[in-house]
């Protein structure tokens, strides 16, 4: 419990740092006015709009005002939608959450069996194939996989819808695209975690007692190898959310990722900040949760506080 509390307390400076990083990134040189007005706008129009938006204030005043508002949950209005940015981001959360969850499901489905199998069959041909496949999965950029899947399964075979959202069928291709990339990394991690277990003292002891290999693996190794999977999954949260930026753009999936890409392109600073915050909180929470679950599952682990 003490561990938990001290971890929660650590979140506060982290969030503060994130706010500072994001603020610096977004405000130092960006001029949204140039993007908001058409190519034909006059200088006077630009200046009027800049003044109206408070962009002519000194930076520290802008930051102070910004932090004051952020603490109230007010990230300002989206320049693109003219509505509170936080609301717009939260509105997109379910779609991204759905995609992230089903991608994680794909990743787990692929990586857990593959990782464990290749560890058991270490240095065999199957191990080589699985390792090769997972490296390949890592070596192909997401957008490329997505476009290929669309061409194959939607345009040529007509099995799944190309893009958009609405039905479970719409979820299939984006989840595979995002899921396989993460599965690649997870397979490698799970394989080594399983190897570690197989090499550990008590498995050797079990073996030396003359127990059957399959029994050893089922009874002892698997259980212990699966515990780190929770942590491995949590470690991928950040990659997973990062991946939604690209996957959602390829598949026109109406989630936070696509929102962010467009917000950055349009210099919609309020949305960028709100979304970055939400993402950071999600990542931190998922790591914290994984930490707790891990400690619960594996009481051997003690942390130095």
């Amino acid at each position: 419990m003490r561990y938990f509390i001290s971890n929660v307390i650590k979140i506060i400076p982290v969030l503060f740092l994130i706010s500072l990083i994001v603020f610096i990134l977004v405000r130092v040189t960006g001029d949204p006015v140039a993007l908001m007005l058409p190519e034909t706008a006059t200088d006077q129009e630009r200046e009027e709009l800049r003044e109206a938006l408070g962009l002519n204030d000194p930076l520290y005043i802008q930051y102070f005002n910004y932090m004051k508002d952020v603490l109230r949950g007010d990230f300002g209005d989206s320049l693109r939608y003219n509505q509170p940015a936080l609301g717009i981001v939260l509105e997109r959360l379910p779609a991204s959450f759905t995609l992230a969850l089903s991608s994680m499901a794909v990743a787990v489905l692929l990586s857990v069996p593959a990782g464990i199998y290749s560890a058991i069959k270490r240095n065999t041909f199957s191990d080589l194939i699985i390792t090769g496949a997972s490296v390949l999965g890592k070596a192909m950029p997401n957008f490329w996989v997505g476009i290929m899947l669309i061409l194959l399964f939607s345009v040529n075979l007509g099995i799944f819808p190309v893009s958009g959202s609405g039905t479970l069928a719409h979820l299939v291709l984006p989840s595979i695209t995002l899921g396989t990339g993460i599965a690649a990394e997870m397979t490698r991690l799970i394989r080594s975690s399983m190897l570690e277990v197989l090499n550990s003292e008590y498995i050797r002891t079990a073996r030396s007692k003359g127990l059957h290999e399959a029994f050893v693996i089922n009874k002892h190794a698997l259980r212990n190898a699966l515990i780190p999977v929770v942590t491995i999954m949590a470690l991928q949260t950040s990659t997973l959310i990062g991946g939604t930026l690209i996957t959602e753009t390829v598949f026109s999936w109406p989630g936070m990722g696509q929102l962010l890409v467009q917000a950055v392109n349009l210099r919609d600073m309020a949305v960028v900040q709100a979304a970055t915050f939400i993402i950071a909180i999600l990542v931190i929470l998922s790591n914290l949760t994984a930490d707790l679950v891990y400690r619960y599952l594996d009481p051997r682990i003690k942390y130095e506080d």
Partner: peptide
């Protein structure tokens, strides 16, 4: 194990049932 896991995930998917309209 995999099947149970998958169904668990799709079951707690908040939008899978509600959104089916727009096709």
């Amino acid at each position: 194990f995999a099947a149970i896991f998958f169904f668990f995930l799709t079951a707690c998917n908040p939008d899978s049932s509600g959104e089916v309209s727009g096709n």
